[in-house]
Nucleic acid binder design. Structure first.
Lengths: 121, 121
DNA sequence: CACGTACATACGGCGTCGGGTATATTATCT
DNA sequence: AGATAATATACCCGACGCCGTATGTACGTG
């Protein structure tokens, strides 16, 4: 389990991560929402924690898990080398879609750049 | 081997993909550049092809493999939900880096948007 | 202090993936 | 057609990952 890619290869772990995007959750909440046995949740959380995807704080007898950004950025950085490739291949399509978006006036996160290529952290 | 994430979990496969970013390559070229036995290369290429990461054309007795963009976009789309999260967490840092970049005048791909969030294909 | 809750860990079993070796297939050349 | 190069596939095996069950630990409450 050496790389971030092996971590996110597991469907249950991806489910947990997606769940944690909304807000931090306790083990029990994850267990109930994803309908998976508690030891399974704990084990996956351990893997995710050791890989830096999540961190936890103790709140009474429960532990709240939340996301950490770094590993995701690592995946993003890896993906970056391929973005150059696929942007070339889909350039015409992209321009077409851009025109579509502007004409249908679907405003998405107005003033924010969507993604940074190669974040340095 | 059901999802794109399992495909890219394998280090040798990622090496092959990275190699193919530059240009299409034959099996033998991959074999030599990555110093891995030929059956290993063929097996991984099979997996990559069936997952849609690469396609091949026959050129005499050799087969040239090249990348296909779709699976990468799938990974990118998955990452997108987390981009919102980490951009919030690193907003201040991001603005700082942006100022750094502009002041050092490091122009990157001038007129091109780096990545499309949620590509529709 | 006994008990219940919330979570973590230990252990055994099983399926699957990747590596290695050998062999089959397809194309090229003489 | 025979030989050789390039690639694909078959088979066996060892390792590792995930699951389920059982048990351990820590915290809170009566």
């Amino acid at each position: 389990m050496t790389s971030v890619f092996e971590i996110i290869a597991e469907p249950n772990r991806r489910a947990i991560l997606s769940l944690l995007v909304g807000a931090e959750q306790s083990v029990g909440e994850i267990e109930r929402q994803l309908r998976m046995p508690q030891p399974t949740v704990s084990k996956h959380l351990r893997v995710l924690r050791e890989a830096g995807f999540v961190e936890s704080t103790v709140a009474a007898q429960r532990r709240l898990y939340r996301l950490k950004p770094e590993p995701f950025q690592e995946v993003d950085a890896w993906l970056d080398q391929f973005r150059r490739f696929w942007s070339v291949h889909l350039d015409a399509l992209e321009r077409h879609l851009d025109r579509m978006e502007r004409s249908t006036a679907t405003k998405k996160r107005p003033g924010k750049k969507p993604a940074r290529p190669k974040p340095r952290t």
